[in-house]
Design a protein around this nucleic acid. Sequence first.
DNA 1: GGTTAGCACTCGCGGGTTTTGAGTGCTAAA
DNA 2: TTTAGCACTCAAAACCCGCGAGTGCTAACC
Lengths: 369, 369
Amino acid sequence: MTRVLIRHKIWGETVELTERKRQILRSVVDSYIQTAEPVGSKAIADELGLSSATIRNEMADLENMGLIEKPHTSAGRIPSPKGYRLYVDELMRDYRLSVEETEKMNSALSEKMNELDKVIDQAGKIVSKLTLLPSYSLSTVRAPRVAVKRFEVIFVDSQSFILVVMTTLEQVKNKLIKVPFPISAAQMPVLSDVLNTHFTGLTMGEITQDIIQSAVLSSGAAGALIALVLEFVSEVLSTQAHGQYHLAGEGNILNHPEYQDPGKARELLTYLNEAGTDALAMPEDGSKVKILIGPENIAEELKDTSVIMASYNIGDGMQGVIGVVGPTRMDYAKVAARLSYFAEGLNRMFGGPQTPPALESPKKEDKDL
Amino acid sequence: MTRVLIRHKIWGETVELTERKRQILRSVVDSYIQTAEPVGSKAIADELGLSSATIRNEMADLENMGLIEKPHTSAGRIPSPKGYRLYVDELMRDYRLSVEETEKMNSALSEKMNELDKVIDQAGKIVSKLTLLPSYSLSTVRAPRVAVKRFEVIFVDSQSFILVVMTTLEQVKNKLIKVPFPISAAQMPVLSDVLNTHFTGLTMGEITQDIIQSAVLSSGAAGALIALVLEFVSEVLSTQAHGQYHLAGEGNILNHPEYQDPGKARELLTYLNEAGTDALAMPEDGSKVKILIGPENIAEELKDTSVIMASYNIGDGMQGVIGVVGPTRMDYAKVAARLSYFAEGLNRMFGGPQTPPALESPKKEDKDL
DNA sequence: GGTTAGCACTCGCGGGTTTTGAGTGCTAAA
DNA sequence: TTTAGCACTCAAAACCCGCGAGTGCTAACC
């Protein structure tokens, strides 16, 4: 019985392995990936039904070939980079995505951030960079009545048009809508007209079947487009209505000696990720900058962490909060100064602190409308 | 000489301090904020020109009032939360922002993310959540010729209008433009016409003074608007032309035992933040998913880190890369599967792998245009 | 030949003990 | 009221040591 050797190429060189050596290598890598512990001959022996001595011999060979190595004399083996390479190229079993996984990814893909989100998110990133601390930012709603103020329709080609929607929060959103049947440029004014007369000033809940009915009737050939439009409108209005929460610069926490213990750091980060939105809102006491020191935080997890936050005005009925989280030993003066300056900037950017008269000022610039 | 006591309110109670005690407390906090080390009587004695014994006496008092505490019997003092509170409310010196700081913040505020950025950034976040690893995402340009394909102008009121711009990369951007003088709805078609005949198909560099001149001439009263429009166009085209880089989920690195040493973790993170964009680009070898194991990375900092990345097609001439970074011991099969599935999704979302015929397909949905 | 049992050896890890030194509180003198 | 002096405390660092998982080698076995 002549031993069958299987040939592999790694980084130029070629190595030849018996099927058994392949199995052993695979086991070593698999197990190490799982447990993060060096794997000894015993474990593999059990798995393959051979004695540990045999495995040791084989492993010695694999080690000579540079595929595995031991961290120190008397420990199990771990894969070397070369071993990983061979594993990835030849040994690795295809991982089958579960349905849940694919579904999660699909829905994540189709989920979109709204405009406000993006600004807020971006602001958080900047603050984090500026303060070298993890930052969070959130928007809270004070008057949740959001409606469309104005529709515009732009003809693109026979299969698509652009819908532009201005909300009562002064945001402008748009979408390139593809239509499953041919349309003509002439239908656009009609559609725009119908939309503006029937659907402006209404929140999503106030749009009844009756209203839709009569809108469809009065728009003739363009009636079929109404459903498409409303779908988008619903999306826009609902994502507008509730506050958003973002974290940024989490890694910065590691810059501070009080979080040398990675357990501590992780604990804080996971707390921020999961529950942050509740604990970090700005109390409504008029002040611009708020400092919460250690135990002044309600949340147990923040007991030895300080939070500095500043608020700013977004459009009508919305308020933004941006803040940082750090050790109680933190340069309060410096951080507070930066944060407050930045919040002022945001305030200005969104159009000043006054509740702005409806149509007059363009408040936020709303590029990318 | 009667000692002057200064009264402070903290959390309801009031405490009275001599000026000297205030100075000492301030010194303790300042120094502790700087060094993160408990501060001893000696240091303060030097600073205030008194003997350490005197300071010790004073500190004992401060400790009794609950303003400072010692981590253990024979260590220096650190501020208690109460001490911090008093410091923040009364002792803290205003921090003066330097010009550089304010400038940095101002420019950060005015810097806007373009649409592509946001999608890419968002994708990174999702992947990071999915793989429990830090992720990065970047876009690289293959054909840097970007121009405007089409202009649309929407009248808002006598002082503002919305400009919608579609680029050759199939992105739709818009901006609410405020005009310093009254305009009329009638000017809009003229403006749109002039823009479309004079400026479509041209990169920013190709727009000469001559072209602008003739455009202004042929647009009559609306001519003054041209400059405003071009400013926006220039902004859009320039931010479109170069690749973007984003990191997300940095905190996830802490979930892996090989980064228990927070020094290691920090090193990796700072490297990723600073230099990532160079080291993590996708090589152009046609494959969809690329795995780099430990030393296969060129960068010294990544020598015991593996990178898995997948590429996808964005609009004409642009390619996106999304990847994760983790310990060499990583579940290659699982991560690669998820990443590649996700990249496919992105690919589809942007309109498939083919270089899409100019006007036909709407490729990316480009909501928020 | 390949496989296995047996055995001596290695060396990292966890635990306890010792040493060190910064910083304290107290007392007595200035 | 301030200061010098001194005995005391205690966390952190250095050191030591025994356990045991895992090894390599050899000799017997199939």
